[in-house]
């Protein structure tokens, strides 16, 4: 029994990681708390639902979701955020607007009702674990989370692009002084943030349902994860996803109403006592961006 709850918590953690990693990276390099991420999440959610309904396989649907969400993010960055890059307050307000617009657009096109996303074949099956049936999809979700984490790690640690991104997160001024062109880097990271949010959307459909409010429903959890992990830290996001996923599964198992409340309280405590998060950089080491 407890094994199943823990496994469910880990699969939730995998989903939270995919959902939050992009937000954390984008904050790291742009200093923008990207509300629009909830909008790209919706783009991914509905794209994958549409593709699945038109005969595509799950992997193809997820890739399409990530691609379209990434393109949406790239366009938004270029048209709306780039002109405001010296104005973090304006960027924050703009991302909120993008989120509201995308939520309403989805509501307009597809309607407010909850769409079911039936999984075919082995994805929709269950396997017995500790004597109880456990959905295969939850295991796939965990696997997807691990693969995406390894990919991010590979790019960040193993490529020159990743080195530049890490330099930009560490100190934008120093990165620019070292000859790194930070502006295209910002666009790229922002687009990757969109791709990750879109993938998270594709992963959410089968267990969370497809509806226009899904973006704002998951937004609070994303914030909790990135705050506890430390904005800008991918490793921190992973640790925080595990903490929050397991806490939600375990607390939710014993007292369903309390799960979210406990997590929000944890976020407030971390914000007050350790605003840089569990694994984030000390704030004093950050320079103001675009200085």
């Amino acid at each position: 029994m407890i094994v199943n709850v823990v496994l469910a918590g880990i699969s939730l953690a995998a989903f939270y990681f995919v959902l939050s990693a992009g937000l954390s990276l984008v904050f790291g390099i742009m200093g923008v708390l990207n509300f629009a991420s909830a909008g790209y999440f919706l783009v991914g959610l509905y794209t994958s639902w549409y593709l699945l309904g038109h005969g595509s396989g799950f992997v193809l649907a997820a890739l399409g979701a990530g691609l379209l969400a990434g393109i949406a993010a790239l366009v938004i960055e270029f048209v709306l955020l780039r002109p405001l890059y010296r104005n973090p307050g304006g960027q924050l307000l703009t991302t909120l607007g993008v989120m509201l617009i995308l939520s309403e657009a989805v509501n307009w096109v597809f309607g407010p009702q909850i769409q079911q996303e039936p999984l075919s074949g082995f994805l929709g099956a269950t396997v017995p674990i500790a004597g109880l049936p456990f959905p295969v999809y939850r295991l796939v979700l965990t696997g997807a989370g691990v693969v995406i984490y390894l990919l991010i790690l590979l790019v960040l640690r193993g490529t020159s692009l990743g080195l530049k991104v890490r330099a930009g997160v560490e100190s934008q001024t120093l990165a620019e002084l070292s000859g790194i062109r930070v502006m295209p880097l910002r666009s790229l990271v922002y687009a990757i943030g969109g791709v990750l949010a879109g993938l998270a959307g594709a992963l959410y459909g089968p267990f969370g349902g497809v509806y226009p409010g899904a973006g704002t429903d998951t937004l609070l959890l994303t914030f909790i994860v990135v705050v506890i992990g430390g904005l800008g830290s991918v490793g921190g996001t992973l640790v925080a996803s595990l903490v929050i996923g397991l806490a939600e599964a375990l607390v939710g198992f014993y007292a369903p109403n309390l799960a979210l409340t406990v997590n929000v309280l944890a976020m407030i405590v971390v914000l007050v006592l350790r605003p840089q998060g569990l694994l984030g950089q000390a704030p004093g080491r950050r320079d103001t961006h675009a200085a």
Partner: peptide, 28 residues
């Protein structure tokens, strides 16, 4: 006094979190 230990995006987030916390309390 507590929220103002934070500024910018962090202030935005802690106000969001405290309000959501109160909302959940009222709802429950």
């Amino acid at each position: 006094l507590v929220s103002l230990r934070l500024r910018g995006a962090y202030f935005a987030m802690i106000t969001f979190a405290i309000a959501e916390f109160a909302y959940l309390l009222v709802q429950n």
